[in-house]
Structures are given as structure tokens and as C-alpha cells.
């Protein structure tokens, strides 16, 4: 099988497209068999998946610069959605403009592989400069609320997401021909697959709620089903997409299922606090871009650093 694909990333994407075709076929069958059922949201979801996978494939395969721009765009859209739903002060408006400027800077650091600056730019430099810029806005009422909300948003939508792009800089070696693109694809499949698996297992078997106060749909059955499924996905994919050993692949599968779950409920808690259901409406059937990348943004830095520590 692998012989037909010179590039393992092509094989990985072919598997994803195969799964999507299966999903589309199942939705088609459901609609045919049960004319009365309402499958609009499910069908919207699958259609949106096609678009997302299409855009992601182009971003991954075209060139490293396009990949970086793709992740930069995700950061921009996610940060915009974030500041549009959180409570902020009129005085923060111009500060937000400066906050937006961190996005191109962070991704230029990614593209130029400046790891040292990349890793400290937001946690050190922006962390120092943002409160100072807020002081210049001359309003101390609500200062702490604004500085924490903007900083958290930048960490999650820019710093964390840029780690997914930074995976691209891991080099191609003789033993690991998929290189950084393979790692990005591996992370994306496991993370998004875990979301879907937790949802499906929860729908099928879900009984015992894990965090009823935050996210009433999350159950132990869904979570454990997700962990199992993600570990299986990891074992199936690691040999051609990553430089991992079998044991490490098992471990990473379990870890990504757990961090994905935590990322998911973290955003659920935020949305519950803000009393909103979705952060936006950009992706039909899914909500906003924040609703789609919630689990990814928290997992990406952990995945990046654990892989960097053990393999690069």
C-alpha cells in the first residue's frame, strides 16, 4: 500500500478522504432510509468537514509558507471570534489592534524557524508590553479583567496554535520522510478524530456524566471510547507519519485524547461563563472556528514539546 504513495503525507490524506467519503455515504443512507429524520446538522457537519479537509490539504501540500499563512489565518479568525464574544472596555479597542499585530510577528518567527524568539515572544515580550499599552489607555477600572482576558486569548489563539505550524520545522530525515508535515497531519487526525470519537461513543453508550456543570454532554463512556479509538488511530498511523516507537505512539494517543478532552471542556467553561452556545457561525454545523479548534489549541503545544524533547 505504502509503495503507491511516495509521500506518506499523501497516504495519510488519502485515508482521511476515504473516511470522509464513508461518512458522506452513511449520511446519504440515513437520509434515504429515514425520510422523516432531521439530518440537516449532521449533513452540514460532513459538508463542512470536506471544506476543512480540502483547505487543510492544500495548506499542507503546497509549500511551507502557505502552511504558515494557513495557521496564521486560523489564529487571526480565532482571536477575532474570541474578542468579539468576551466583555471588553471601549478603552481596550486600540490595545486590541496591537494584540492583532502579534499574529504576523509570531508567524514570521515560525516561518523563519526562530525557535528561541518564537517561544518567548508572547509569554515574555507581549506579556510585558500588553499591560503597559493598556496603562496608556488611561482607565484602571476593569484593568485586570482586560489584561487577563486579552493575554489568555493571545496564548490560546496565537501562541498555542502557532505550535501546530512550528511542527512544520521538524526536519525530514532518512527514517522519517514525512517530516513536519507528517507530524501536523498526525496531530490533526488524532485530535479531530478524538473529538468525533468522543462524540460518537457518547451518543452510543453515554450514561455517566463527567463534568455535568460544565459540559452536560460529556460522559465517561464517550471519553474512554475516545481514548481507545485515538490510541488505535495512533498505532495505525505512527509508522509512516511520525518517528515514534510503538510504545510512544500508544502513549501519545492516550495523551492527545486526554488533552483534547481538557481543551474541549476548557472552552465549554468559557462559553458557559459568557452564556453563549457557540463562539461564532463561520463553519456550518460546527459553530465558529474557536468551537472547532478548542481541543487542538491546547493540545498543540504539549504535543510539540513532548515530541521535541524525545525526538529532535
Amino acid at each position: 500500500m505504502i509503495r503507491f504513495f511516495d509521500n506518506p503525507v499523501h497516504l495519510g490524506l488519502a485515508i482521511v478522504i476515504g473516511l470522509l467519503m464513508a461518512a458522506s455515504f452513511i449520511v446519504f443512507l440515513l437520509q434515504k432510509l429515514n425520510q422523516n429524520g432531521d439530518y440537516k446538522e449532521l449533513s452540514d457537519r460532513v459538508k463542512s468537514w470536506w471544506v476543512m479537509v480540502g483547505v487543510f490539504s492544500i495548506a499542507l501540500l503546497s509549500s511551507p509558507v502557505i502552511s504558515v499563512i494557513f495557521f496564521g489565518l486560523i489564529s487571526f479568525l480565532a482571536f477575532k471570534e474570541y474578542i468579539s464574544v468576551i466583555p471588553l472596555r471601549k478603552a481596550d479597542r486600540r490595545v486590541l489592534f496591537w494584540a492583532y499585530l502579534t499574529i504576523p510577528i509570531q508567524y514570521v518567527l515560525v516561518a523563519s524557524n526562530q525557535y528561541g524568539l518564537f517561544i518567548v515572544f508572547i509569554p515574555v515580550w507581549v506579556f510585558f508590553l500588553l499591560p503597559f499599552r493598556l496603562i496608556l489607555a488611561k482607565q484602571t477600572d476593569g484593568f485586570l479583567q482586560s489584561v487577563s482576558a486579552i493575554s489568555w486569548g493571545l496564548m490560546i489563539t496565537v501562541f498555542a496554535v502557532s505550535h501546530a505550524a512550528m511542527l512544520m520545522q521538524f526536519p525530514v530525515t532518512k527514517d522519517h520522510v514525512a517530516g513536519g508535515a507528517g507530524l501536523i497531519l498526525f496531530l490533526a487526525i488524532l485530535n479531530q478524530g478524538n473529538d468525533v470519537a468522543q462524540y460518537v461513543w457518547g451518543k452510543l453508550l453515554g450514561k455517566n456524566k463527567i463534568v455535568p456543570d460544565v459540559s452536560p454532554n460529556k460522559t465517561w463512556e464517550g471519553f474512554l471510547g475516545g481514548v481507545g479509538t485515538t490510541m488505535v488511530m495512533s498505532v495505525l498511523l505512527y509508522s509512516f507519519l511520525t518517528p515514534f516507537s510503538f510504545i510512544f505512539a500508544l502513549f501519545i494517543g492516550a495523551m492527545l485524547a486526554l488533552t483534547g478532552f481538557i481543551g474541549d471542556v476548557t472552552f465549554s467553561a468559557m462559553k458557559r461563563d459568557l452564556k453563549i452556545k457557540d463562539a461564532g457561525a463561520l463553519i456550518p454545523g460546527h459553530g465558529g472556528i474557536l468551537d472547532r479548534i478548542d481541543s487542538l489549541s491546547l493540545s498543540a503545544p504539549l504535543f510539540f514539546h513532548i515530541v521535541r524533547f524525545f525526538y529532535y
Binding site: 477575532k80 474578542i83 468579539s84 479597542r93 486600540r94 486590541l96 489592534f97 492583532y100
Partner: peptide
């Protein structure tokens, strides 16, 4: 809603908001 946050009266600097 939102355009008055993105570009209110008397401001020349556009800040993206949904």
C-alpha cells in the same frame, strides 16, 4: 452589532470584530 466597535465615529483605525 459590532461595526461600532470595529470603526466607531471619529476613529480612523479599524480593529477587526465579528
Amino acid at each position: 452589532h459590532g461595526l461600532g466597535k470595529a470603526l466607531p465615529r471619529g476613529e480612523a483605525l479599524l480593529v477587526p470584530f465579528v
